[in-house]
Every structure is written in C-alpha cells, then in structure tokens.
Design a protein around this nucleic acid. Structure first.
Lengths: 243, 243
DNA sequence: CGAACTATTGACGTCGCTCAACTAGTGTGG
DNA sequence: CCACACTAGTTGAGCGACGTCAATAGTTCG
C-alpha cells in the first residue's frame, strides 16, 4: 500500500492538506514494519524506552491497571491510530497497550518524529492535531463515565467506534466487524461484565443495536443517535481545515 | 515578569531545555495580554474561531454540558496551562471554558502557533509534550471516574492539584489555596454535590485532608497518598528529558 | 438587611455490583 | 471422535454506594 492510501494519511488529510515534503517525511515513519500476535503487550506502564507505533491493520487497546487488579481501558486503537505516543514523549510510559487481534504496525522512534518537525512543520501541526483528537476522545469518554447511564454510555461508545472506523474505510452505517469481548466493553465503560451483558440485551430488545458474534449491527441508527445524544463534532471529521 | 520566569516556561522546562530561539518564539505568544472577571466564558462549545490562552494568573475550568443540563468538568487550568488549545485546532470547539477566579492570560492565535513550529521545532516538541500531558491528565481522570470509589477519587484529585500547583510554584506539601466550590468538585468527579460534602467530611474525620474556606490542607499526606495509590509518574515532572 | 450562593445533614430510592449457577462455543490431546 | 478444559456469554437474587429530595444553616456582597 502506498503512503498515499495509508489509514494514517487518510486520517491526517481529514485535517490538513499535506504537501509532498510532508508525505515524504511521513513515509519515513513507515520504514520499520512489524507484526504482532493477538494479546501481545506492545507498551508497558512504568517502563522507559518504549516504542510508539502507527497501526496499519488490526485492533489494539491502551489501558491502566490499578493496584487491586482492576483495569480501565482508555481507548481502542484502529488502523491509522498512533499507539503509545505518550510512552516515547514521557520518561516512563503512563499506560500499557496490547494487541486485541493480530496486528501490523510501523514502529516510530522518538528521534524520527522530533527530527521531522524541523523538516515538515505542517506535519508537526498535523500530529499535534492527531494527539489533540485523541485527547478529545479521552475527554468525551470522561463525560461518558462521569455523567451518562450505562445504557447511554454503551450507545455512545458503539456509535463512536462506528464513526471512527468509517473514517478509515472500514464499516459503514449498517455496522462493523468488532473483535471485542464483553469484558473489553466492561473495562472501557467502567461497568461490570455482567451489567454490560444486561445493557446489550436491553439495546437489542429495543431494536437499536445488536452486538453478536463479532459484529455490531446498527438496527436503528437514528434511534441510537437520539438515545446517546451523539454528535461527531469532537471527532473533527469535516474535511481539510488548512488548505 | 520576564518570559524566563513565566509559569509556562517553568512548566515546559520540566520537559525540554529551551534554546534562546525557543524562548524568543515563546515570548511572541505573550504579546496579547488580557484580563477577565471571574465567571467569564472564555471558550464556547460548538463555536468556531475561538481563542486559545496561556493562563498567567488565576484559575479556569473546561467542561462539557449535556443536553439535560448536567455538566462534566474536564479539568481545571492553573497558571502555566493552555486553555482552549483544541478550540483553535478544531473547526468547532468541543468544549467550553470559563474563569473560576479573575484571570490574567495571553491570547494565542492559531497562526502564531503554526508559524512558530517552522522557526523553533523544539518548541513544537515542547508544546506536543504539554498537550500530551493534558491528555495524560484526562486519562488519569478517566481511570478515576471509571474505577475508583468516591472517597479515593476525591483524594486522588486533591493530590493531583497539589502536585500541579507545586510545579508552578504555588502551594507546597502542607496544602494550597483553592477557589473551588463543592459544586465544582462534584462536576469534576462525576458525583452529586451532596455526596461530595459527605466524602469531604469523611476524609476530614479520618485526619487526611481538610477542604475549608478556600484552603486545602494535607493533614496526613502519607496516608492520603496511600489511600489514593497516588503516583505522579503521569505528570512527568522529573526534570528536562531533552538536553 | 435581604438576596443569592454555598455548605450541611437526614430519609429514602435506585442503578449497577457481587456472587453464583448454568449454557454454549472452541480448541487440544488421547 | 470424544473428554475436558477454558473462555465467553447469560440470567437471577440480593445488596450497597451514591443519587434525589428536602430542610436548615452559614457566608458574601450589594
């Protein structure tokens, strides 16, 4: 796949029009191609000298583990997403990250990225945007956990995933393939797995979404959007801002 | 106050050693000095062409409001923090922001910031770090809301504020002055104001912290840190990484 | 001195958790 | 080809953390 069609290029192009210098510099990020098995630990919390990756294929998740063993999933990474960026920017990684499915990714070294900022300032802006978008998602998840009921929270979460996958060209408005288990959902939404199950049943019985056998189907996407009061503004998807 | 002693310089210097070019470029961000009264709305969710600010004096908070009127506070900004950065990077702001106390701040234009990346790439890195640190805080708040009890959540929150204030030279390990109301705490921690009051009483009666009349006093900081399992790693404070 | 905000406390209700049991699917080795 | 182990999903019963409602101080500020 050419750099022009990589999911990351596609995503960044939703924000800035990248010049040929930007694209060449970005291409350097893709030199170290790696494959990982499902379950592989990509980044370890508390460790120094971690790697960052750009995900090309498959799903990963980033999370923190509390001393009592409870886990909070921060976000899932899909093709085009950075993985572990903070772990190279910070002395020690503040989070862990693992492969949910098998993964194809490019390893990014801190030096590569810092050097690129001198050569392609517009790329620096685009990366700042990507990090800000990740932050915007973390913020939306914060609202989700702080102020929404379990049912609305789940609806919001599934809609967000759907919108993100659509941007990088996987899935459409009827639904998407989803490798997550109910335990993943529980850890992401701050719920117990048991309650996740009940909430999914409720949403299914209401004819809104079905989550079964690796597939999320939007049975009534209008209704679901209304329930979740879902607004994609925070994903900032509406075509290049900087021309 | 010279740029060398500004809270932002102080904060960024905890990450990179800034060159004189970096400092000169940074100084340009401080040309548009503004004052605002307590309660002033600095940034409005859903609006375009918002401004960003660097806070020099006072406290602000960023938040989202849900259609039912509930509010989730994302974070509080203290001197040295950016305010509304995402609102200039995104087409429309994904959040609102208001002054908690009266405020002194420098207005930052998007163009100023993007231009600076070409002149001072290391500054770009420092700003990327600052945004990443904001994200790290959002992530830690996420864990707070998702997996910690009200009491531990409160302890963690107060310790974080204490650590952040200490970095910019306000407050110490005995406590800090704090202009927040219990309603602010409730909206930040995803609790009801009534429950905040009960939790504060509990912590006070256990001899851990006192939150009263605009002051937070750490009565037993060791005990509080143990209760909250507080680890400052995510704030990434331990002296310049890039020399 | 009154208006408006902020803090405090009690009574009671509920959302989501825990514990527990059971089913279904999937992979592995004998 | 079956036995079993293991993981993922499903459902009920009971309980507890935190919310809601309501009443009563204090505080601040014009």
């Amino acid at each position: 796949m050419s750099i022009l069609e990589s999911p990351l290029t596609r995503k960044l192009s939703a924000f800035v029009a990248l010049s040929s210098v930007d694209l060449e510099t970005l291409a350097k990020f893709h030199r170290r191609r790696r494959s990982f098995k499902a379950g592989h630990q990509m980044v370890a919390e508390g460790e120094t000298h971690q790697s960052a990756f750009i995900l090309a294929e498959g799903w990963a998740c980033s999370f923190k583990v509390l001393p009592d063993g409870e886990r909070q999933i921060i976000d899932f990474q899909i093709p085009g997403d950075f993985l572990g960026l903070r772990s190279i920017l910070f002395r020690t990684s503040d989070h862990s990250s693992e492969a949910v499915t098998k993964i194809e990714a490019s390893e990014v070294l801190a030096a590569d990225m810092f050097d690129s900022f001198g050569q392609a300032p517009r790329l620096a802006t685009a990366i700042l945007w990507a990090v800000s978008r990740d932050e915007a998602m973390a913020v939306e998840h914060l609202v989700n956990l702080g102020r929404r009921s379990a049912e609305v929270r789940m609806a919001h979460f599934l809609l967000e995933l759907g919108a993100r996958l659509k941007l990088v060209g996987v899935g459409d408005k009827t639904g998407f393939n989803c490798p997550l288990t109910q335990y993943h959902l529980a850890d992401a939404l701050g719920l117990s797995a048991v309650h996740v199950n009940r909430v999914l049943r409720q949403l299914r019985e209401d004819g809104l979404v079905t989550f079964q056998r690796g597939r999320v189907s939007f049975d009534n996407i209008r209704g679901l959007i209304a329930l979740a009061e879902f607004d994609t503004a925070y994903l900032d998807h509406d075509g290049p801002l900087l021309k």
